[in-house]
């Protein structure tokens, strides 16, 4: 996210950003195992940003794929897809120190398969959530070059999720053969509520700007998720990304 990258002065700016990263995921799904599965892998992302003086809209698609294993050496393959968007409203303060507040929406799908399990080896979870978002940005100059440090963060508060039923990967609503596709979905979703479920992320990054307004960035994306019911799932991801942003 390259907010406040350049001065807009009433004009609308469009940016596209591609990123590639490496990092770590740690997962504990109590319905699968009491042990944490941890591993390193690759991630990539594609995002679009539309920015005016007072408002920034940001949309990001991301994907990661890893092999994760536990302390006993049992392993899983792990794949994650996410679509996140931010709507941020600038709080004027000073030229090169910005604070923006707004809301965010996070949608993501995790799929993992335990290599040691025969049947019912797959698990998948889907979440759609809404919450607050904030961004702090600071410009600075180093060796006569312009840099910006940004720290966007969000915390998801309300939404819904689908998760596997008690022992099978099918969500509960789809275990009843009388339920249609939509009814199965409706009967499967559960509320994502504060104190019951948590999802938060922080994404500090430093960007270097070229004269063209394009930039290259180094970012660390951290995300934490927890669902407490019925069998808790905890997930913690941290990925280093290198990204390139282009003005459209």
């Amino acid at each position: 996210m390259l907010l406040f990258a350049t001065q807009t002065y009433g004009q609308t700016q469009h940016q596209i950003n591609t990123s590639l990263g490496v990092g770590q995921t740690a997962l504990r799904d109590q319905s699968m195992s009491p042990l944490a599965y941890v591993g390193y892998g690759l991630a990539c992302g594609l995002s679009y940003q539309r920015q005016t003086d007072s408002k920034t809209k940001f949309f990001q698609l991301s994907f990661s794929n890893l092999g994760i294993s536990n302390s006993s050496g049992n392993s899983c393959s792990f794949t994650s897809f996410a679509f996140k968007n931010y709507s941020l409203y600038t709080i004027p303060k000073e030229l090169n120190y910005h604070l923006a507040l707004g809301w965010s929406n996070n949608n993501f799908l995790n799929y993992y398969q335990n290599h040691k399990y025969g049947n019912f080896s797959e698990r998948s979870n889907y979440f759609t959530t809404f919450g607050f978002a904030a961004l702090l940005a600071k410009r600075f100059t180093l060796l006569n070059r312009g840099f910006i440090v940004e720290i966007p963060t969000d915390i998801q508060l309300l939404g819904f999720y689908l998760r596997p039923s008690y022992v099978s990967n099918s969500p509960e609503g789809y275990l009843n053969p009388e339920n249609s596709g939509f009814e199965g979905w409706y009967r499967s979703i559960e509320a994502f509520l504060p104190h019951h479920s948590w999802n938060l992320s922080i994404n500090p990054r430093i960007s270097f700007f070229f004269k063209s307004g394009n930039s290259v960035s180094l970012a660390y994306q951290y995300e934490f998720l927890r669902i407490n019911n019925p069998e808790p799932i905890s997930q913690s991801n941290g990925f280093w990304h290198v990204s390139i942003s282009t003005l459209l």
Binding site: P34, A36, Y222, S236, G238
Partner: peptide
């Protein structure tokens, strides 16, 4: 500027430690 660098340093410290934010494995 100092705060920015502190935050950047924190980011580096927490990177690679994703597992630390999960509870320990059961006894």
């Amino acid at each position: 500027m100092k705060r920015i660098f502190i935050l950047a340093l924190m980011a580096i410290v927490i990177s690679g430690c994703a597992k630390q934010f999960l509870a320990d494995d059961p006894e």
